[in-house]
């Protein structure tokens, strides 16, 4: 089950906590993986750890031209692209009434517009091959909202609607498009919480703990696999029961 031997995958945000685990998991199932991100050192370390079947493609997703070039570069490096995991994301939290246009634009550009451009760039060859997996890493916040994260929530909700639309368009070509929506996951993003915030967060999670990147990665592996061939347009919530949707 869930064998990805011979498949090729691009993971954006692979220098981050969850992205790294996604790259590891896809690689462990046999895929050839292109890892993209902004932190060169983290990518170097991950590439060294994975050893073979890995390509490193640093990319700044706020740069439109760099985004446009990323899929062709991955296809060239891997000899095709079967799986896109659009994972990169940033937060620029602020109260709604104080949010600057620049904070809004930056989060929408990286989280939503870059996902759009990447998916647009890879869908043509996936249609031609009659196989493709596009997986967006969204967030529980995109569905339930969160104070101070109007921009982030909008970008993540946008991703869900965008990918449902794409899923409808390409379903007949055996290209599936889904989202994984993590809840609170151990990562640099949640490390920024202080103890009090952390305790408050945990009262909202029936499982009483944060999730791990590996638990997100396992869902990605499932959606990327041939076994998930009849699953499209869905959002898989991985949140310890925090929101049951």
């Amino acid at each position: 089950m869930f064998d990805l031997s011979g498949k090729t995958a691009l993971v954006t945000g692979a220098s981050g906590g969850i992205g790294k685990e996604i790259a590891r998991a896809l690689h462990a199932q046999g895929a050839r993986v292109a890892i993209s991100g902004t932190r060169r050192e983290a990518l170097d370390a991950l590439a060294a750890e994975l050893g073979s079947r890995v390509e490193m493609l640093p990319c700044d997703l706020s740069d439109a031209q760099a985004v446009e070039a990323l899929v062709p570069a991955s296809e060239a490096a891997l000899g095709g692209l079967d799986i896109l995991v659009s994972n990169a994301g940033v937060t620029r939290d602020n109260l709604f009434m104080r949010m600057k246009d620049e904070e809004w634009d930056n989060v929408i550009a990286i989280n939503l517009t870059a996902s759009f451009r990447l998916a647009r760039a890879c869908v043509k060859s996936m249609m031609r091959k009659r196989f493709g997996r596009i997986i967006g890493i969204t967030s529980v916040v995109g569905v339930v909202g969160n104070a101070g994260q109007g921009n982030y929530a909008a970008s993540k909700a946008g991703m869900i609607g965008m990918f449902k639309s794409l899923a409808s368009e390409v379903a007949s070509r055996n290209v599936t498009v889904n989202c994984v929506a993590p809840g609170f996951i151990e990562s640099p993003m949640t490390d920024a919480l202080n103890e009090k915030q952390r305790a408050a967060v945990l009262t909202t999670v029936p499982m009483g703990r944060l999730g791990t990147g590996a638990e997100i990665a396992a869902s990605v592996v499932y959606l990327a696999s041939s076994e998930a061939s009849y699953v499209t347009g869905q959002t898989l919530h991985v949140n310890g029961g925090m929101a049951m949707i």
Binding site: M127, R128, E169, S172
Partner: peptide
């Protein structure tokens, strides 16, 4: 409409 895109391809 998707067929027409594929035809062009």
């Amino acid at each position: 409409s998707l067929d027409t895109v594929e035809l062009v391809m």
